[in-house]
């Protein structure tokens, strides 16, 4: 027998599972061939080393662990069992090599979709926080003008007849005031005059009415507007001025 034929059969010869005729041929070959004999001895050595790794006894507490697992499973409701079954099956699916990439790709797509939907679902109040804020020197009757513009926007007919000097007044420019400072408290204002306080959370409310307007709706509308408006910290030349807040409302344009 040639070495090429004998070598692949050495393992089976070692385990004594070859047919008798082949076994005799291998045995004769091993008696003559030093190389194959060395390979056979190597196999024998491997077997001895592996056999030396005798059985490792199971720890005594394995019994308790199994018992606990069975008891827990028996006590669990059908919902828990169903959930665990689904989790187990899902874990099998997602650990498949191909599925791993599919699930990751799906996750990425879903996350992207989520962010797109979220950003499109919210109507943003556009306000560039870093934009410089003009340091306004309010003219003495400026607050009066505010009230006029507001009432014009709110559709108060009596005020609509008044001449409005300022066009496209931006109401956000007008609320550049310090905390607790009266926004509109000019005694000369013949429509209404209120003290409005804004706390640091940005919520505003009329604190005191100095002068009531002839039309009570005007005051109510103003209060509704001022309490529902959003406020943000003021900034000037890119620097946040934490002591001031700016009202974030859409630009109100005023017609003649």
């Amino acid at each position: 027998m040639l070495c090429e034929k004998a070598l692949p059969l050495l393992s089976e010869y070692f385990d004594d599972v070859l047919d008798p005729q082949t076994a005799i041929q291998i045995s004769q070959h091993l008696g003559q061939c030093i190389r194959c004999r060395r390979e056979f001895d190597g196999l024998s050595s491997v077997h001895k080393r592996l056999q030396a790794l005798h059985r490792v006894a199971a720890p005594a507490y394995l019994n308790s662990l199994v018992r606990h697992k069975i008891e827990k499973r028996t006590r669990d409701s059908w919902r828990v069992r169903l959930r665990e079954d689904i989790e187990r099956r899902w874990s099998k699916i997602r650990t498949l090599e191909g599925m791993w990439y599919v699930t990751r790709a799906l996750g990425t797509v879903m996350a992207s979709l989520f962010f797109v939907l979220i950003t499109s679902a919210i109507t943003p109040y556009y306000m560039n926080v870093n934009a410089p804020v003009r340091d306004l020197n309010f003219p003495p009757d400026y607050s009066h003008q505010v009230a006029v513009n507001l009432m014009k926007k709110l559709g108060i007919p009596t005020l609509a007849q008044r001449q409005i000097a300022w066009r496209d007044a931006a109401i956000s420019d007008l609320y550049f005031s310090q905390f607790g400072e009266a926004i509109s408290s000019t005694p000369k204002d013949d429509d209404f005059s209120v003290v409005t306080r804004i706390d640091r959370s940005g919520s505003a409310q009329i604190q005191n009415v100095l002068q009531y307007p002839a039309d009570e709706n005007l005051l109510n509308n103003f209060n509704a507007m001022i309490t529902t408006a959003r406020w943000r910290p003021a900034s000037r030349n890119g620097q946040v001025i934490s002591s001031h807040l700016v009202c974030m409302v859409s630009k109100i344009s005023v017609d003649n």
Binding site: L53, R55, V56, A57, P59, L62
Partner: peptide
């Protein structure tokens, strides 16, 4: 069979 199973799995 506990030792048999544990030993096989351990190996």
């Amino acid at each position: 069979y506990s030792s048999m199973v544990f030993s096989l799995v351990y190996q």
